[in-house]
Each structure stands twice: as C-alpha cells, then as structure tokens.
Amino acid sequence: MKSVLFSIFFTTLSASTLVATPLAAQDNNVDNRVNRLEKEMRAVQRKVFPGGSSQYFEPDIKPDAAAPITPNNTTSAVSDLIARVDTLERSLASLTDQVEQNGFRLRKIEDKLAAATPAVSTTPVTPPSTTTGSSTSNAAPAPAAKPAPERVSGVAAIVMPNSGDAGEDAYIYGYRLWEAGYYPEAQVQLKKASANYPKHRRASFSKNLLGRAYLDDEKPALASVALYENYQELPRGERAPDSLYYLSTALVQLNKKTDACRVLGELQDVYPDEAAGRLNGQVARGKAAANCK
C-alpha cells in the first residue's frame, strides 16, 4: 500500500513540474498523465474502500474526440491542471488519513481482544500415575477417605451449647472441638463463627483460636494468615495481642525469625500493658525462639 501511495505522490510531483514548461507542445502529454494519475487514485480508492462511494473523484468522463485542442488556450489549461492536481493531493491526503484511522481502530480492537482473552497456563500438567496392568488411561480420582468411625462418634459427642447467645455458643463449640484435638473440625467451626457473627465480642477469640488450630495441625502458613487477619481486622479485639504472639510462633516455624522479632516488637509497642503483664512470659519465650537481640 505504501509503495502505491509513494508512486502516486511521485507521479503527482512530476505532473506539477511539467506545468512550468511551455504547455503548447505538452498539453496532450500532461493531460494524459493527469488522467492516468486520476485513474490510479480511483484504483487506490477501490482497494482501500471496496464498495464505497465516489465522493473523492468524479466518474470517468471520456474526452470528446471531436473537440480540437486549441494551443492558445494556455491560461485555462493551466488553471484546470492546477485544480485537478490540487484535488488529487487533497484526495490523497484524505485517503492516507482514512488508512491511518482504520489502522488505529484495528489496533484498539486487537488490544481489547487480547485483554479479554484469558492467559493460557504454561505449567506442565503431570499425568496421573497408572496402576500396573490397568488398561484404563483416564481413571476417576479416588474418593476422599472417610473418617474413622471412632472419630465420627468422638466429634458427635462434642455438645453444641445452647445458652441463648448464638455468637457465644458458636465460639464455645469451636473451642471444645479444638480442646478435644479435632483440629480440622474446629477450623471449620471457628471460621463459621467469625463469619456469622463478625460484630460479636467472641469474633476476636474465634479468629485467634483458628490460627492456633492451624498451628496445632502443623499448618504454620495458614496460621500466619489467620492470625495476621485478626490483628488487622480487629486490632481492638481482646485476642489481638495474642494473635501477634502466635503469629511470631508461626513465623519461627516458617524459618522467618527476623520477621518474628519485628512482630514481637510491634506487640510491645502497640500493646505495652499486655506485653508487660499477661503475655510477659510468652513474649520472652518468643524472643528466645526467634533469637531476637
């Protein structure tokens, strides 16, 4: 496309140069070249705007072969030639502008499509292991193991309290499950308690005990998330200082002792009375475990 436009532009410049020469002997030559130039422009128009209107050029008009060429009509010929060249230049500029606008719109559409298309994961998928002698290649996943009957009966033996305070009862039931060592069941119940009663006084207790249940279940990463969220979401809650201490414990288990020391330092700065009083012994043990200076 660029080469065609450049050729047309070069031809236009050549036609403009011929105007400065004596036109008496070159009228036919110039007129023929301008006619050819107009036809090339029409071809460009049809290529860029297929099926479009003829708003840029007049329809083809065959010259009257019987009309004689008058050499003395130099002034009108020059004016007509200049007008036609100006029209060609304006049309060329308009076509170029349309091409640039269409290209810009196309790029915008492509960008939107690219943004709407979900990224394809490049992580290799490990095929499931197959059992020797089995002819099934797409075996269904194994069902989750059912809890042992004694565990089911043990959990069922934990009584849900009914004091009339639903928020209190939800926390106490989670506490009883945790105290009995049923950590996964306690985690489910404590999440439910804090979600269902976020404004209750026991919400801070539920979130803190959820972190401890993860710690006791040997899941320090999940514990650190739960404990930090309790401190961030309920900084005035009764168990927010405790969550900072247990957060330092989780960080030590994750081998992030420097961060554990920072957390203990924040506990002392934000809750100085708790750190020096009820939690004094725990803070001392936490610093020793994290090798805090």
Rank of each mutant, 00 (worst) to 15 (best):
E229W: 05
N208T: 10
A203I: 02
R212A: 07
N230I: 04
E185F: 05
Q232S: 15
N230L: 10
A195N: 14
A226H: 02
D216V: 02
Y228T: 12
A221M: 14
K191D: 10
D217S: 08
E185P: 05
L234Q: 12
G181D: 10
Y245T: 01
A203F: 02
K191F: 06
V225G: 08
V225F: 07
Q189F: 01
L215A: 02
L209H: 05
Y231N: 09
L215Q: 02
E238H: 06
S204A: 12
E233D: 15
Q187L: 07
Y183K: 09
K207V: 07
Y228W: 13
A223I: 00
L234F: 13
E238G: 07
L227D: 08
N196V: 06
Y183L: 11
P184H: 01
E218Y: 06
K192G: 04
G211C: 12
P220D: 08
V225C: 11
D242Q: 14
L234C: 05
R212G: 00
G211W: 04
A203Y: 01
R201V: 14
S194Y: 05
Y182S: 00
K199W: 06
Y183W: 08
P220C: 06
S243D: 11
D216P: 00
S204K: 04
Q232A: 15
L209R: 05
L222V: 02
L244W: 03
L244V: 11
P198Q: 13
R236W: 08
S194K: 10
R236Q: 15
K199A: 15
A203C: 10
L222H: 06
S206V: 03
G237N: 05
A223R: 00
Y246M: 10
L215G: 01
R239N: 13
